[in-house]
Structures are given as C-alpha cells and as structure tokens.
C-alpha cells in the first residue's frame, strides 16, 4: 500500500495500462517531455518514447479527431485535454463523431477513446480554468462519463476506462488533485464503471455528489450530525450510465434528498437525479428535493469561494429538508 494523490493515481494507472497493453497511446498538449501541466503524464515519455507519448500541435479538435482515427484503427488512444474549459473546439468530434461511431456504422466501427481532462473550480482559475462541463456530455448518447472523487477510484476507474469498449470522458477533480493523499493497493485492480459508492451510511437524508463535491458532502454531514441528523452520502462516480438502483435504494431508505454539484444549477446533472427520483420514488419522499449547485453565472475569479458550494450551504439545504 502506498499513500498517493489523485495525480499520482492517474499517473500510475497510465503507466500500468501502457505497460500492460502496447496499443495504449497518450497524446495531448504538453503531455510528453513536460509530463503534463498537472504532472499526470510525468515520466511516460521517458518510459514509452515519442511514439506512444505524443506532444500534439495546439488544437483540441485535432487531438480528439486524431485520437478517434487512431482508435478506429485499433490503438487505444488516451488523449488529455489540458483543462476541460478548453474542450469546446472538440465538441463536434466528441458528440457527433466519437460517441456515435458504433451506432452510425451498425457496430462495424468502434473508437473507445478515453478523454482525460481536469475539471472544476477551487484553484483560483477563473472562467477559463474552472468550469464543470459534465452535462454537455451526459446528454450525449454513446459516451460514458466518469468522475472519480479520490485516488483509489481515480486509479481503478481510469484503468477500467482504458479497458472499456466504449468511449469515456474521464473528468478529474483538479481541486483535490494533490490532497488529500490516500492509501492505494500496489496490486492491479479496477473499479467497475456504472456503480455508485455509499461514502457515509445514514438514515435521515441522502446527499448525492461526485468529484470534488464528495468531501463537501461529507463535511456537511458531520455538521448535520451535530444536530442529530444522520446523513447518507452517495458518491455517483459514474454519471453515465448512472447507477439508478443505488440512488433509488438510498432515497427509499432516507426519504429526503439533497443533490450537490459545483456546476451551474439550471439543467444540471442534479436536475436529472431529481427527475428520476420524482418519477420513480415520489411516494417515499418526505420533503421536497433540494439542489445545491453553482450559480447560473459564469465562473468567477475573485468570488470563487462564494460561488463554490461549501459545507454550510449544504447544511442549510439539509436543514430545509429535515425541518420541512
């Protein structure tokens, strides 16, 4: 067991998968000699060479388009988009090309590319280095969308994504890239895609969260416990395909739901969670669902700490559902 960060977990997963499978190729801006601006691809260039760790020209659409072409041919391309805020030039390649090849070709062509990209706020990055773009992609049929919340999952889910036959968007929570550290087994393991994890068992209310918001949910539950309310934290881990079963099971137990995300509220992923609970479990609910989310504004620079959901804001929502 080694105590590692998410950055190290990602790096280890890449090293292990590239060692296991010669077809795995990493490409992107600054991923080579520099080892990535967040160091997620450190040492790879030295270990695997120019052919498998490719510094590309500066074009996101080019990176994803080339990765698609490589994967159609049979390689396993793992492109990095340096910040998810830079992903938009590749939107067409991701949504209409990558995600649709299997379907539109009647299953003749597949391109199981794994796009790694850091997302989210909390690093004083302002609008261009803080966005949470997940719902643009969860709305896209054909894509798998994964968001780990700790080092163990980051490693196990990334390895599972690389072995998956489907294209995966792998969103890395950069706020918690380097802390906290976590003990991770040295042995080869994968974490199954499509399964949520209960991070804290509780009976009075459920909080759903993913990525960097999981620790905020945990902190809020500690505060709620001081008031005698016992919360359950469901870490979604995979957004598509969603583990609906775990969601329904949790709210069936607690009867109350607070959804937590740092992305803007309107049409956010929590809106989908709320709709699913409303459709399938409204009869067990004892209070209206409360969504805690980023504001429907662009992501700010100076007032980032106001914008990002924090434990006290979540506690307010918990208080509302508990005192309804």
């Amino acid at each position: 067991m080694a105590e590692i960060t998410i950055v190290q977990a990602v790096n280890d997963a890449l090293k292990e998968e590239m060692t296991r499978d010669d077809d795995v190729v990493v490409l992107g801006e600054d991923v080579g000699v520099n080892g990535g601006v967040f160091r997620c691809t450190a040492d790879l260039h030295e270990m695997f060479g120019d052919d498998r760790v490719i510094d590309t020209p500066l074009s996101e659409s080019g990176i994803i388009g080339a990765a698609i072409g490589m994967s159609l041919y049979g390689l396993k391309a793992v492109p990095e988009i340096q910040f998810s805020d830079f992903i938009w030039p590749a939107f067409d390649q991701i949504t209409s090309e990558l995600a649709k090849f299997r379907y539109r070709s009647g299953g003749q062509f597949t391109c199981p590319v794994v796009i790694r990209t850091p997302y989210g706020g909390g690093i004083r990055g302002g609008h261009y280095h803080s966005q949470s773009p997940e719902v643009y992609f969860t709305h896209t049929s054909g894509l798998v969308v994964v968001v780990p919340s700790d080092a163990y999952d980051a490693k196990g889910l990334l390895k599972a994504a690389i072995r998956s036959p489907d294209p995966v968007l792998f969103l890395e929570p950069k706020k918690i890239y380097r802390a906290p550290k976590m003990e991770v087994p040295d042995d080869d393991y994968v974490v199954e895609i499509g399964k949520a994890a209960v991070r804290r068992e509780g009976t009075d209310f459920t909080i759903t969260a993913y990525g960097a918001m999981v620790e905020v949910a945990m902190a809020a539950c500690e505060k709620a416990a001081e008031k005698g309310w016992n919360g359950e934290v469901l870490d979604l881990r995979t957004l598509v395909p969603l583990d609906e079963e775990s969601l329904i099971a949790s709210v069936t137990k607690t009867g109350r739901l607070v959804t937590l995300q740092e992305a803007p509220k309107f049409c956010g992923f929590s809106s989908e969670l709320s709709a699913i609970v409303a459709e399938k479990a409204i009869d067990v609910m004892e209070a209206p669902i409360k969504r805690v989310a980023g504001f429907d504004t662009p992501f700010p620079y100076t007032l980032e700490h106001v914008y990002m959901p924090h434990a006290d804001r979540v506690l307010n929502a918990i208080t509302e559902v508990m005192t309804y």
Partner: peptide, 30 residues
C-alpha cells in the same frame, strides 16, 4: 460504412473526417 473494405463511416459535418484520417495514418505509421 464498410469496415470490410476499410471504408470509414461517412460524416455529414464537413471536414471532421480529415483529422481522423490523420489519426489512422499515424496508427499505421506507429
């Protein structure tokens, strides 16, 4: 789409396949 003949699925949006072809050629080279 004719995979047997290595004919990749045709796209309507113009130009998207040009960079994909580059990617495939890169794979052939590698």
């Amino acid at each position: 789409s004719f995979a047997k003949q290595n004919i990749v699925s045709i796209s309507s949006p113009i130009g998207t396949h040009i960079i994909q072809a580059t990617g495939t050629a890169m794979a052939q080279k590698l």
